[in-house]
C-alpha cells in the first residue's frame, strides 16, 4: 500500500516537473499503452516485460489497456501523446497490417512513432479438429485441395493472427477455403475442439496446451525450425509448404519526437528485460522466446515494421478485405 501512495505522489511530482532534463529520465510513472484488452496475449507479454523494466528504470512502468478497432485506437492515442518518454505503446504485427487493413488511419504507422525495439516473435501452428482424416501436412494439402468446397477454416476476425495466417496458407495452396470468422480466439478454439469447424492456424500461446492435451490435431509450425515446446511437430517446409513462415512479433514504440537519450535508455531497459531469466522462462511457457539482443533495438524494429508493411500490403489487397 505504501508503495502505491509513493507512486501517486511521484505521479504528481513528475507532472509538475514536466520540463525535467532527458538525462534525468525517468522521474515519474511511465505508461505503456496496450491497444487490446487486459488478460489477452499481448497484455501478458506487456505485463511481463514492463515488470522487469520497472526494476531497471527505477520507476513504475504501468500497463494501460486502450482496446478497440483492431488496436488502432490505442496506437492513435500514443501517436498524439507528448513525446516525453512517459507514453509508450506496445503493439504486435497489427501495427504493420492495419496500415493496409484500414484505409484511413489517424496516424502514419511509419512516421508517427519512434521505435524502441522488438520484443518477441510468437510462432504460428496449423491445427485441426482431432478427427480430421489426414495424418500429416502433405496429406492435409491434398485433402484440402480435393475437398475445397467443404473444408472450413476458422479465424478470430479481420486482422487477427489467425486471419493473416489463413490468408498466407490459402495463397500458398492457391486454394480458397470457406472461412468462418469468430469474435476472438476463444470461441474459435471451442468450435475447433467441438469439431464444428475443420482448420485453424493460431499462435502457440493459444494452441500449445490443447495440442499437448490431445484436444486438437497439429499439422505444422509455420517457422523455419521446430519448437522446443512441441519437438514432434514438423515445420511447414518439412511438410512441403513454402512461404508461410509467420510470427506474431511484438514491438515497443514511443511517439515520434521523443528525445534520443530517452529512447536509448528505454532500449537498454528493454534489452535487460529480455535477458531476465524470469521473462525468458515465462515466454518459454507461452511457446515463444525473446528476440536476440541485437533485435531489441530501434533500428531492428524500424526495419521489421517497414518490411512487414511491404509484405502484407499485396496479401491483404489480393484478399480484398478491409476493416473499415
Amino acid at each position: 500500500m505504501i508503495r502505491r501512495h509513493l507512486t501517486a505522489a511521484a505521479t504528481i511530482l513528475g507532472l509538475s516537473m514536466g520540463g525535467a532534463l532527458a538525462q534525468d529520465y525517468p522521474t515519474g510513472t511511465v505508461s505503456v499503452v496496450v491497444p487490446f484488452s487486459a488478460g489477452g496475449p499481448t497484455d501478458t507479454v506487456a505485463r511481463l516485460v514492463t515488470e522487469s523494466m520497472s526494476r531497471t528504470l527505477g520507476q513504475q512502468v504501468i500497463v494501460e489497456n486502450v482496446g478497440g478497432a483492431g488496436g488502432t485506437l490505442g496506437a492513435a492515442r500514443v501517436a498524439k501523446a507528448a513525446p516525453d518518454g512517459y507514453n509508450l505503446l506496445l503493439h504486435h504485427i497489427g501495427m504493420a497490417t492495419t496500415a493496409t487493413l484500414y484505409r484511413s488511419l489517424p496516424y502514419d504507422p511509419q512516421t508517427a512513432f519512434a521505435p524502441i525495439g522488438l520484443i518477441t516473435d510468437v510462432p504460428m501452428t496449423l491445427v485441426a479438429r482431432k478427427d480430421l482424416e489426414p495424418q500429416d501436412l502433405a496429406g492435409l494439402i491434398s485433402y484440402v485441395k480435393a475437398n475445397k468446397d467443404t473444408v472450413t477454416y476458422a479465424n478470430a476476425g479481420v486482422g487477427a493472427a489467425s486471419h493473416l495466417c489463413g490468408m498466407l496458407f490459402m495463397s500458398a495452396l492457391q486454394t480458397p477455403l470457406t472461412t468462418v470468422p469468430y469474435k476472438g480466439t476463444g470461441p474459435a478454439m471451442t468450435d475447433l475442439i467441438g469439431g464444428q469447424v475443420d482448420l485453424m492456424c493460431d499462435q502457440t500461446t493459444n494452441t500449445t496446451n490443447q495440442i499437448k492435451g490431445g484436444e486438437i490435431k497439429a499439422y505444422a509450425v509455420f517457422l523455419d525450425q521446430r519448437l522446443d515446446s512441441l519437438p514432434d511437430l514438423p515445420t511447414a517446409k518439412e511438410g512441403g509448404l513454402e512461404g508461410v513462415e509467420l510470427g506474431i512479433w511484438h514491438g515497443l514504440y514511443a511517439p515520434a519526437g521523443t528525445p534520443e537519450p530517452v529512447i536509448a535508455k528505454l532500449a537498454d531497459a528493454l534489452k535487460t528485460a529480455l535477458a531476465d531469466p524470469k521473462v525468458v522462462e515465462r515466454f518459454a511457457e507461452l511457446g515463444t522466446k525473446p528476440v536476440p539482443a541485437d533485435q531489441a533495438t530501434p533500428a531492428a524494429l524500424q526495419a521489421k515494421l517497414t518490411a512487414e508493411i511491404a509484405r502484407w500490403r499485396p496479401v491483404i489487397e489480393a484478399a480484398g478485405i478491409y476493416a473499415d
Partner: peptide
C-alpha cells in the same frame, strides 16, 4: 482469469 493464469506462468488448458 486466463490472462492472470498466463502471467502467473500457468497456461490454462486440458493439462
Amino acid at each position: 482469469m486466463i490472462g492472470a493464469m498466463i502471467i502467473q506462468g500457468i497456461t490454462p488448458g486440458p493439462n
